[in-house]
């Protein structure tokens, strides 16, 4: 089942001589429960693509359909509502709210949606992320790896249609990076969570079901590495 469909996405920054084409006619689809890695050199348009998919940036041309909804046809408020319900974003620099502790950061999108807090789900996610001992800490009191786990917890809490992760290991050492990827993969495999991940690291990219290679804003390769749900890489 197709959960994401990108059709002829283009993104142009600036005008005239200073015009930069960050994305050029990018089209692809992602199946529900699929783990897709997007790779490419710096400036190839990976992050731009991810932010367009996440609805935090708008394409110059083309459309993005998530679970049948053209997200850029939504008005600002509806897009915000859509984002908090259907998309989980994980950033390289975590982007946690510094004034909220671990628990509060994780449940924030859920609360923003006006829903009652699900304590059991929170407990299971915190345990799943291995943050039980740090629940009352602020982000500044956590290590980089722990902060990124909180960020993943926040992304997962609302059962989003897609998780978009922008170089989630880029700011972490190898060991922490591996743990983060394991967590993401685990949610993808066990909960059929669709995952799109941007990375520079080939070894991480190769763990995905499919790898999209971007260069100068264009998809130059779109390779199926393994069949959907196949080759579960358990710990």
């Amino acid at each position: 089942m197709e959960i994401l469909k990108c059709e002829h996405i283009s993104k142009v920054y600036g005008k005239g001589n200073t015009c930069v084409k960050a994305l050029d006619d990018v089209s692809f689809t992602v199946e529900k429960g699929e783990f897709v890695s997007i790779v490419g050199p710096s400036g190839s348009g990976k992050s731009t693509l991810l932010h367009i998919l996440g609805g935090v940036d708008k394409p110059t041309e083309g459309k993005v359909m998530i679970d049948g909804t053209d997200i850029h046809s939504l008005n600002e408020d509806n897009l915000a509502i859509f984002r908090r319900r259907q998309i989980g974003l994980v950033y390289q620099f975590y982007n946690l709210l510094p004034v909220l502790n671990v628990d509060e950061n994780i449940v924030l999108p859920h609360l923003l949606d006006g829903r009652k807090m699900e304590q059991e789900r929170l407990d299971s996610i915190v345990e799943y992320l291995g943050l039980t001992e740090r629940r009352k800490n602020l982000p500044s009191q956590l290590s980089g790896g722990q902060q990124q786990r909180v960020s993943i917890g926040r992304a997962l809490f609302n059962h989003p249609a897609i998780i978009l992760a922008d170089e989630p290991t880029g700011n972490l050492d190898r060991k922490n990076g591996e743990e983060i990827i394991k967590l993401l993969k685990k949610s993808n495999r066990t909960q059929k969570q669709t995952l799109i991940l941007i990375t520079h690291d080939e070894s991480i990219a190769l763990q995905a079901d499919r790898m999209i290679y971007l260069e100068d804003g264009k998809i130059v390769r779109n390779e199926q590495i393994r069949s959907l749900g196949g080759g579960i890489d358990e710990e």
Partner: peptide, 27 residues
């Protein structure tokens, strides 16, 4: 070392107040 969760606003599902109050208390 530790910052207790602000359950009042979480239970009431008031994320705006939660962030606002924590901004005032913790920053």
């Amino acid at each position: 070392k530790e910052y207790k969760r602000n359950d009042f606003f979480i239970k009431k599902s008031k994320p705006e107040a939660l962030v606002a109050v924590n901004n005032l208390k913790r920053q």
